[in-house]
Simulated assay, not measured.
Amino acid sequence: MKKAISIFLAAAMLAGVSMGCSSSPASSGSSSGSASSSAAKKPEFVFRYAENQAKDYPTTQGAYKFAEIVEQKTNGRIKIEVYYGAQLGDEKSVMEQMQFGGIDFARVSLSPLAEFAKQLNVLQLPYLYRDSAHMWKVLEGPIGDQFKNGLGESKLVGLSWYDSGSRNFYNSKKPITKLEDLKGMKIRVQENQMMMDMIKAIGAQPTPMAYGEVYSALQTGVIEAAEN
């Protein structure tokens, strides 16, 4: 079984949030009660969370729940703003922004992340897992921890794994029932060299493309199929 994996990331610079940051200044005695209450509710830190899926998508709803829990657990001291639908850019752009602190959290697919940390390609090799239970046993065990905790050079911190379902092909031309049906087709793949090599190996033409461009590319004929 070929599974799609995504990961929840935080920018490495967040590790310094609890250090060197003063608390909000105390209100003066002349401030009104309502003003003091308003100041108390103002968050000390505001972080940005990037998600490329729509607002009602499960991973986006998970992002909102994460933001809600963080705000509750910190008594409003930390606020996380969720930007869904790739408002802050595609996944590659988001990770680049995270590296210099422009974005603080993101849920991204493993394929584009593997271009920043090549060792992650191992986890998305075709037919690596027997089923979902096998995949989660790997990801939630010492092997998964080793990969998740090994992103230091990329200036990113892995927080948790997501299951993005089984990988599949879809197209605008014909039914696909066997690998031979894909030969010669222009197929969208994620922006990852291993994925491009896989498509070449089955005799098709890989076209690396951001997720948000796939629908229009299928409509205009830039691609004939997509792997996702």
Rank of each mutant, 00 (worst) to 15 (best):
Y127N: 09
L123M: 01
I202C: 10
A39W: 11
F66G: 04
P206I: 01
S31R: 10
G212L: 09
V108Q: 00
P58C: 00
R107V: 14
K174H: 10
E224V: 04
V122C: 04
K65C: 00
K200G: 07
A86Y: 04
L125A: 15
R77A: 13
A225G: 15
A133Q: 13
K173A: 09
S30M: 15
E96T: 15
D131G: 05
Q87G: 02
E51G: 01
F45T: 07
A10L: 03
M135A: 08
S27R: 07
G16N: 09
D197T: 01
L9Y: 02
L156A: 02
S24M: 13
Y49K: 02
S111V: 00
K178E: 06
S93K: 15
K183V: 12
E91C: 00
P126V: 12
L182P: 05
S22F: 13
G85D: 12
K41D: 06
T220W: 03
P43T: 05
T59Y: 15
A50P: 01
S109W: 00
W136I: 06
S216M: 09
E191G: 09
A114C: 05
K92S: 13
L159N: 11
M1H: 10
L179C: 14
D163W: 05
Q87D: 11
D90Y: 10
K73E: 14
M135D: 03
I80Y: 09
T177N: 09
I223M: 03
I78A: 05
P175H: 10
E68Y: 13
G16Q: 11
F100G: 00
I187N: 15
M135P: 04
N149E: 14
S36A: 15
E44A: 14
